[in-house]
Write a protein that binds this DNA or RNA. Sequence first.
DNA 1: TATATTTCTACACCAGGTGCAGAAAGATTC
DNA 2: GAATCTTTCTGCACCTGGTGTAGAAATATA
Lengths: 212, 212
Amino acid sequence: MTTPDKPGLRERKKQRTRTAISDAAIDLFLDRGFAHVSVAEIAHAAEVSKRTLFAYFPTKEDLVVHRMADHEQEAARVVRARPAHTTPLTALRDYFLDGLRRRDPITGLNDHPAVRSLTELIYGTPALIDRMQRFKAGGERALAEALCDTTEASDLTARLAAVQIIGVQWALSADNFQRLVQGETADGRYEGAVRDAEHAFDLLANGLAALT
Amino acid sequence: MTTPDKPGLRERKKQRTRTAISDAAIDLFLDRGFAHVSVAEIAHAAEVSKRTLFAYFPTKEDLVVHRMADHEQEAARVVRARPAHTTPLTALRDYFLDGLRRRDPITGLNDHPAVRSLTELIYGTPALIDRMQRFKAGGERALAEALCDTTEASDLTARLAAVQIIGVQWALSADNFQRLVQGETADGRYEGAVRDAEHAFDLLANGLAALT
DNA sequence: TATATTTCTACACCAGGTGCAGAAAGATTC
DNA sequence: GAATCTTTCTGCACCTGGTGTAGAAATATA
């Protein structure tokens, strides 16, 4: 996938323009809120025409959420790359726990100001949440395929499992992040986050039957 | 909640206008596709000003998906209204199975032309899917609260369970509908849909541990 | 240096959505 | 039933996200 051949002036400039636009956008959004900044303003701040902005990002929302696009296929990759004799659920649990250890922003357990304020922006903007949901759905599809390809599960079973797993991961992340908003630190929250994640994956593995 | 006091001419007219607008919109959407009909056109067809249309429906998308809004709290209601000594999961499973029996559109198992083409419209329009996701999220929140209020489960456990349950129900519905699109009839699909639903709720109750 | 390609820009345009002031219609009082 | 109060509807101007297009500018190639 990587093409380290010749970056080429053109490609380098494109990459710089892209980040310049996104950075300008996020700066303005953080400052005044998503709705109160127009794309024209962003284009001006990035010293680019409005038309060019939309050549790089299909929508205003994507100016923010494009950074999460890489993570969309993550769960699917983890399942496909798991060692033999390892169950998908175990692989995903270990990966999530490792994410907590690394304070991976996607686990909701990163309280660096830049990460935090960006997450706050997303959670506080319905339009951005909608876009995130689309990534979530894409992640579900990818994981379902991975489960289908690497296990004996039926197509439907794979989809059901994928929906449950991705849903639970997002719920865990949202919970962690909400606690940071309420004042906990990432380090202070870490142990609880681990316990909760283990509990959640236990529920996934053993079911909700205990729920009365 | 119901106020059967005096409908009042004003209220009656409002209700009629509301359905007139929605009906006009859906007719046009089914005919030419969501993106190729402007709200101005819909307002004209419904003999109403554009401004009035937006007084009844906050967005173009809501012209279609507002009909699902009633179902948003359904799962939560079922859990709250369940008989004593009945587990939430059992109540929800029985309710879903009953929905299949009744060919409730929300189960994806209704092949009446009007229902079917409307569902096709929604599934075929990304903007409408996005709006549906918002209802899904609302349903998750409501169910989580219901579980929290009526069981011993912790707040987090309730949210995790809610996400799994609602996700599974939507996946089942989507699967049923997809089969209708591919040519199966609702009656022909019924038995398979029941089997799949039972399988799905088994997974929910007993977990994904069997998945290797 | 000359030329072919890609990218950027300016500009006009469409559509969804909002604010506002006044007209119209339903409710209320005598 | 007329006068008045209140809610709703309308038309219009306006903003903003997003697109089509033609030509200018910049990069790659020879």
